Simulated scan of single mutants.
Amino acid sequence: MTDVEIPPAAKMHELLTGFQVSQALFAVAELGVATALLDGPREVNDVAAAVGADADTLGRIIRFLAQLGVFRTSGDTVEITDLGRTLADGPADSLRNVARYFHQTHYAPFGSLLHTVRTGEPAATAYLGKPFFDWVMESPELAALQNDAMAGFTQNARGDLLDVYELPEGRTVADIGGADATLLVELLTGRPERRGIVFDLPSTVAGARPTVQAAGLDERVEIVAGDFFESVPTADVYVLSAVLQDWDNTASLRILRNVARAAPAGAALVVVDMVVPEGDAPHPTKMIDITMLGMLGGRQRSESEWRRLLADGGFTLQRVVSGSGSYSVLEATLA
């Protein structure tokens, strides 16, 4: 039996209704349906009662998502698949908080993407009436969810990158825009000769203390509040992880030049970010680039674009290291 070719109009209809897939996934994530199925198959009525949902409606959502591989059904019984487990609490590759975050922050603003295409202004700015990060920081709950979501996403998207890459020499490592210090703790664990600085906005870096304490690194990590558009601390190794993707070239250059001004001779810059491959082949970076476009005015960059940006910011790109995930390391030195 051969696969039936989908007519172009039917394929386009499928693409146009992608928003329905997103909303169904958001609902499942918010309710905790995947978490309720981690211990094994259950009757749909039982799952609905456990998560506080209407059984008939939940059953239809499950049927819809089962065709996409999120669930597996047999009669009135449903079980979670490996794909669906990524929406559950507990698994190491969980994206539940990412789904909950996107639902609360990204979905509605993307209705203004046409405005972005016409004007260049981020859809989120037009929809919210202010820059996205300013809006998020007005809500401590959303700021905390953003920290959790981004820590989980970047950790999964890095894959084995930190296993195949070793930081340059240097006693003090500064994670600029380091949020709750999840990455910095990972970089310092097992390296007692190094100390660290986690640097971010006051409302964001406040979440770093519990992470640092839980890792037993209080004596080696300094938590510093500030604005990387104004200045950054002095360090031997600077890490910018998933930071520059959030900003256009003008804003990114302000960050890079502030790092260059603070950096002593011999300092190294480690950019953990995505590198867009050439050509039309599918790649996660191209999808995330549209997220940056609509929400922040940021962008994903090709290797040649990274090289130019770093040079304009005062650095020379030395090498690019990739692992199993979507993120790469761009290691640079002061020009």
Rank of each mutant, 00 (worst) to 15 (best):
P109Y: 13
A123S: 03
V117H: 04
E141M: 13
S112F: 11
T105C: 11
L114Y: 11
A143I: 08
L128N: 14
R100N: 12
A108L: 12
T116Q: 00
R100T: 09
W135T: 12
F102H: 10
V117Y: 09
P140Y: 10
F102P: 00
H115N: 00
H103R: 07
N147H: 12
D134E: 13
H103M: 05
E121C: 09
P140A: 15
L114G: 15
T105I: 12
L145T: 11
H103C: 00
A124P: 03
T105W: 03
H103F: 01
N147W: 00
P131V: 13
V136D: 07
R100S: 02
N147I: 00
E138R: 11
Q155K: 15
A123H: 01
Q155D: 03
Q146A: 06
E141Y: 02
A144E: 06
G120R: 02
F132Y: 11
F102E: 04
S139K: 05
G152K: 01
T116S: 11
W135E: 11
D148V: 15
H115I: 08
G111I: 08
F102T: 02
Y127A: 15
L142I: 06
Y127D: 14
F132K: 06
V117R: 00
D148W: 06
H103P: 00
G129S: 10
D148M: 07
L113M: 13
S139P: 05
R100D: 02
F132T: 11
T116P: 01
G120K: 02
F132E: 11
A108W: 09
L145I: 10
G111Q: 12
A151D: 13
A149L: 01
G111T: 14
A143R: 10
Q104K: 13
M137H: 14
D148G: 05
F110L: 14
